[in-house]
């Protein structure tokens, strides 16, 4: 899933300062699952902004709505009326959602309420970690199902650097070195021979922006 986190409230307040009527728009897919921009977060943010407006002595109307997915046209039709009545849309979807709203409703300002972070998963309650960078050229079959591009800060694809210590990363000693994890998994699988092969230079043209596919 796409993982994001809500921007700090002062930043959001600054963004919406010029608008009196705000539609706070949640997203029912990734942003809901990572507790960043689902129905619950829309409610909480609306209350916080309401209190803030009162403290500032400002008049502000907030409308709340959460669509199934902000990133698909078919789910955006239902908000047309609400968008038209608003001065701005505060999207709690990822960057894709924000841009979909902007494209679908070209006359209304859309503001990002989240910072979109990465593609990842919750590894335990409340902890999400990055697992994939979408490099367009998957080598997980050769690295024991553990991605060194996403999980090594240097994205090294031919084994670890010399900086790790006790199996931990030089950048963050609380994090496991991706290559130590790969080594241990390949060892368990009896496939340490896979580490003998040198990976060729990566084709980064497959990561060149903007990417698209047509089916």
């Amino acid at each position: 899933m796409i993982v994001g986190k809500q921007k700090p409230l002062p930043e959001i307040r600054e963004m919406i300062a010029d608008y009196g009527n705000i539609l706070i728009l949640g997203c029912g897919t990734c942003a809901t699952v990572c507790f960043a921009g689902g129905e619950r977060e829309v409610d909480i943010l609306a209350s916080s902004l309401g209190i803030a407006a009162k403290l500032e002595g400002k008049e502000r109307v907030t409308t709340k709505h959460t669509v199934k997915r902000q990133c698909e046209w078919e789910f955006l039709d239902e908000i047309e009326e609400k968008v038209k009545q608003a001065d701005a849309v505060l999207s709690l979807g990822c960057g894709v959602g924000v841009q979909a709203i902007a494209e679908r409703f070209p006359e209304i300002p859309v503001l990002p309420g989240l910072d979109t972070l990465f593609m990842g998963m919750p590894v335990e309650e409340g902890v999400w970690v990055e697992r994939c960078v979408g490099c367009g050229n998957c080598i997980l079959n050769q690295t024991g199902g553990i991605c060194p591009i996403a999980r090594c800060p240097k994205g090294l694809i031919n084994g670890p650097c010399g900086g790790y210590r006790d199996g931990k990363c030089e950048v963050d000693p609380t994090r496991d070195c991706a290559w130590v994890l790969i080594y241990e998994r390949l060892k368990k699988m009896g496939r340490l021979d896979m580490l003998h092969t040198s990976q060729p230079l990566k084709d980064y043209s497959k990561m060149g922006h903007p990417r698209s596919i047509t089916r």
């Binding site: 090294l156 900086g163 040198s198 990566k202």
Partner: peptide, 28 residues
């Protein structure tokens, strides 16, 4: 060499390049 990660240096906000790794550099 791979080089120490930019996060531990004096420009921690920099974008690391890591287009190739040290082994690929040797090959190149």
């Amino acid at each position: 060499l791979s080089g120490d990660h930019q996060a531990i240096g004096n420009h921690p906000d920099a974008k690391g390049v890591y287009d190739i790794d040290s082994i690929q550099l040797i090959q190149m």
